[in-house]
Design a protein around this nucleic acid. Structure first.
Length: 574
DNA sequence: CGGAGACGCGCG
DNA sequence: AAAGCGCGCGTCTCCG
C-alpha cells in the first residue's frame, strides 16, 4: 500500500480505474501539473479511503457518475472532486460549442453521440470502455491533460473565481447524486399500494396482451361512454375518440386538456376530469412503477447532473423530479428516523433581487413572505403580486396581471431592467450567463436563418420570425434567473453535503446513524436522519444556505431563508 | 412493427 | 390582443 502523499497546499490526485479492482493514480499540483510519478494500485477503493482519511484530496477523474459510483459500491466515500466530463460541458457551453451535452473530455464526443459532420473522428481514449489495462497510462495522460486544459480555461474567464466555484459545485453535485441514488428515498410500497387500491380498486391481474384497466377506471370509462350517448365504448385516453364523441354530444371544444374541460358545464365533465386524474396516477406511478423503481424500501432514481441547460438536475427513469404530491404519503422515515425537508422559500424572485442589486426589491426580499411584501409595495393582493412577478421572470405580459406588472416595473425599475436586458440579449441572438457563469446555449442555425436580417421584421408580414425572436427573449430572460437559482441551490447542496459528512475529511461508508441526503429537487432537499439528530441537521441547512448566499452573491441585502420541516412523512412537510 | 411527434400532465 | 420558463414520461397517432 502506498504512502499517502502530503505536500503544502491542496492535493489533487488523478485517477483512472482499471478493469478490475485496481487503477492508476498520479498526484497533481493545484495548477494541474505533475507532482509525482504515476502509480498502479491494486485496490483503488482502499487507496482512496486511505488518502481521504489522511487529509484533503481533490480527486480528478473522468466522471463521478462512473468513477465514483464504482468506488462507492466498494465503500469508498470522497469529499471533493474535479469532474472532467461536467466541467468540460460547462466550458463547452461557455465557449460557444453548439451542443455541449454531446461533448466529452477535451472536446472528444462521448460514445453514442452523433459525430458532427465537420469534425474529424477522434480517438476515444476514455471510451475504449471494455479495453483492458494496457490503455491505462494513455487514459491517465489524457485525463491529466484535459484537467490542466480546463484549469487554464477557467483561469481565462472574466470571473475565474466564480467559474471555479461553479466547476467545484457541479463536481460536488455529481458526488451527491451518486450518493443519493445509492441511499435511495425511503419509500413504503405498502402505503403506496393502499393508496392505489383505495383510488383505483384492486390491482388488475398482470396478463400478456393489452393491460386491463383497474375497476374504478373501467367503471368511469363506461359511465363516460353512456353520458356521451356513444354507441361504442369511448376510450377517454384517445384524444381523437374523445373529441369525436364530445362533438357528437354537442360539446364544442378545441382540446381535451383538463383546464379546457373544466370550463364546461356538462355532466360528463366531472367524470372525465376524475378519469384523467386517476389514469395519470395509474400510468405514471401505478403498480408497475412500484415494481420497477422501489425495492428494499427505497426509491432509487438516477439523477442527471447538469441535465437541464439552466444547471438544474434532470432524472432518468422513474420520474424522480415529478413525484405527485399525493404519493408523498408513501415517503416515510425508517423507525427511529425522521425526514428533514428543507425548501428555499421563493428562491427565484429573491435571486432576481440579488442579481439586479435592486435595493427596494432587496428590502422586500428581506421579509419572510416576499410576495406579501411586494403586494404591499405595489398596492395589490398577494396573488396578484405573485402572478406579476412570475410574469416578469417568464416573459408574460400579464393578462389580468398586466396592471400589476406595470406597477412592478415602476416600483422596482432595476429588477425590471435586469430581466428586460437579458430578454433583449436573447432576442439579438446573444448568449447570457448565470451569476456563476453558466452559459445558455446559442441560438440554433434554424433560429438564425429565421430571424436573420433578410427576414421581415414586420410581424404582420413575417409572424414566424417575430415569434421566434420573442421566444428566445423569454428563454434568456428566464435563464438568468433560473440558472442563477440553480447555482445557489447547487452550492447550498454541496455545502450541506460537506456539513452532514461531519467535515471535509469525513470518509468511509456512512456509519449507521449518519444523516444522509436522500432527495434534491431544484430548491428542495430531504435529509433522512435519526430523530435525535434532526435539530443538528436543520441547523446545518441554515448554515449551508447562508454560506451559499455569501459565496454566490457576495454582500447582498437579500436573504435566502430555508423552511425546514421535521416530519415522519414527506406529505406532512407542506 | 418501430420510431417520431403531438399532446397532456406531473414537478419546480 | 394574447401568451409567458424549464424538465420526464406515458399514450395515442401517423408514417415509413
Amino acid at each position: 500500500m502506498s504512502v499517502p502523499c502530503r505536500t503544502l497546499g491542496n492535493v489533487r490526485i488523478a485517477l483512472v480505474a482499471g478493469a478490475s479492482t485496481g487503477g492508476l493514480v498520479r498526484p497533481l499540483r493545484d495548477d494541474g501539473t505533475l507532482a509525482g510519478p504515476a502509480e498502479s494500485v491494486p485496490d483503488l477503493a482502499a487507496y482512496v479511503a486511505a488518502q481521504e482519511a489522511a487529509g484533503q484530496v481533490r480527486w480528478v477523474w473522468r466522471a463521478g457518475r462512473l468513477d465514483y459510483a464504482r468506488l462507492l459500491r466498494s465503500g469508498a466515500r470522497v469529499s471533493r472532486c474535479h469532474d472532467v466530463e461536467l466541467v468540460g460541458a460547462l466550458l463547452a457551453a461557455r465557449d460557444g460549442q453548439a451542443n455541449p451535452a454531446s461533448v466529452g473530455i477535451a472536446g472528444v464526443p462521448r460514445r453514442g453521440d452523433v459525430q458532427p459532420a465537420d469534425t474529424e473522428p477522434a480517438a476515444l481514449p476514455f471510451d475504449a470502455g471494455d479495453a483492458p489495462e494496457p490503455d491505462g497510462p494513455a487514459r491517465l495522460a489524457t485525463l491529466i491533460a484535459a484537467h490542466a486544459d480546463q484549469l487554464a480555461r477557467i483561469g481565462t474567464d472574466p470571473h475565474p473565481a466564480k467559474f471555479a466555484l461553479l466547476a467545484a459545485a457541479e463536481s460536488a453535485g455529481a458526488l451527491a447524486a451518486v450518493e443519493m441514488s445509492a441511499a435511495g428515498l425511503p419509500w413504503r410500497a405498502d402505503v403506496h399500494d393502499q393508496l392505489l387500491t383505495g383510488l383505483l380498486g384492486a390491482r388488475p391481474p398482470v396478463i400478456t396482451g393489452p393491460a386491463l384497466r383497474p375497476a374504478r377506471l373501467a367503471e368511469l370509462a363506461g359511465r363516460i361512454t353512456a353520458e356521451l350517448g356513444a354507441s361504442r365504448p369511448v376510450n377517454p385516453e384517445s384524444r381523437t375518440q374523445l373529441l369525436r364523441a364530445l362533438t357528437a354530444a354537442g360539446i364544442r371544444v378545441s382540446s381535451t386538456r383538463s383546464a379546457v374541460l373544466r370550463q364546461l358545464d356538462h355532466p360528463v365533465i366531472p367524470l372525465l376530469l376524475e378519469y384523467k386524474e386517476l389514469t395519470r396516477l395509474h400510468a405514471a406511478n401505478g403498480w408497475s412503477w412500484l415494481d420497477a423503481w422501489v425495492s428494499g424500501g427505497r426509491f432509487r432514481p438516477e439523477y442527471v447532473v447538469g441535465g437541464v441547460v439552466s444547471g438544474r438536475w434532470a432524472s432518468r427513469g422513474g420520474g424522480a423530479l415529478q413525484i405527485p404530491r399525493l404519493l408523498r404519503r408513501a415517503v416515510v422515515a425508517d423507525p427511529g428516523w425522521t425526514l428533514v425537508v428543507a425548501d428555499a422559500a421563493q428562491l427565484e424572485p429573491r435571486v432576481l433581487a440579488a442579481l439586479a442589486d435592486d435595493r427596494s426589491f432587496a428590502q422586500a426580499a428581506a421579509a419572510g413572505d416576499l410576495y406579501a411584501a411586494i403586494a404591499a409595495a405595489i398596492g395589490g393582493d398577494r396573488s396578484q403580486a405573485k402572478v406579476a412577478l412570475l410574469s416578469a421572470m417568464y416573459g408574460g405580459s400579464g393578462g389580468d396581471g398586466g396592471r400589476s406588472l406595470a406597477l412592478l416595473r415602476r416600483r422596482f425599475p432595476q429588477a425590471a431592467a435586469f430581466v428586460e436586458s437579458a430578454a433583449r440579449a436573447g432576442e439579438e441572438g446573444h448568449v447570457v450567463r448565470s451569476v456563476l457563469g453558466r452559459a445558455c446555449p446559442p441560438p440554433s442555425a434554424a433560429w438564425r436563418t429565421l430571424t436573420s436580417e433578410s427576414a421581415d421584421p414586420d410581424e404582420a408580414r413575417d409572424p414566424g420570425a417575430a415569434a421566434a425572436t420573442r421566444a428566445r427573449g423569454r428563454f434568456t430572460r428566464n435563464f438568468v434567473v433560473q440558472a442563477s437559482a440553480a447555482d445557489w441551490a447547487l452550492v447550498m447542496l454541496a455545502l450541506l453535503r460537506t456539513r452532514l459528512g461531519g467535515g471535509p475529511t469525513a470518509t468511509a461508508v456512512p456509519q449507521s446513524g449518519q444523516p444522509e441526503l436522500v432527495f434534491f429537487q431544484h430548491d428542495e432537499v430531504i435529509v433522512h436522519c435519526p430523530i435525535e439528530r434532526a435539530a443538528e441537521v436543520s441547523t446545518a441547512v441554515q448554515h449551508a444556505a447562508a454560506e451559499a448566499t455569501g459565496l454566490v452573491f457576495g454582500d447582498t441585502g437579500v436573504s435566502f431563508p430555508m423552511t425546514t420541516a421535521v416530519v415522519g412523512c414527506y406529505a406532512d412537510a407542506k
